[in-house]
Amino acid sequence: MRIACPWCGPRPLSEFTYGGDAAKTRPKAPEAAGLETWMDYVYLRKNPAGRHREYWHHGSGCRCWLIVTRDTVTHEIEHVALAAPQMREGKK
């Protein structure tokens, strides 16, 4: 598998580290969030068979965290973006 890093271009998997489900966001108001929200953020994951947005770290390249949209069945990669919000392309 190769990941097309927005900075570095297509690079082999061995340069990256997996970082888990990118659908989860750290609670913005941490104190008010409550235990249940925190448990959900830290522990609960969907594990879909199909489209999945996930973090990958380009440790042997630009050291950026990426959000990769990947099909967990076919391993096809649909989209790769930088994880830092202000650097995401087509930010919605």
Partner: peptide
């Protein structure tokens, strides 16, 4: 050493990029 650096980059780029 490597894992802490990766963790710091995650915290900076994903949680607190401002």
């Amino acid at each position: 050493a490597a894992a802490v650096m990766r963790h710091m980059e995650f915290c900076h780029q994903v949680h607190w990029s401002k």
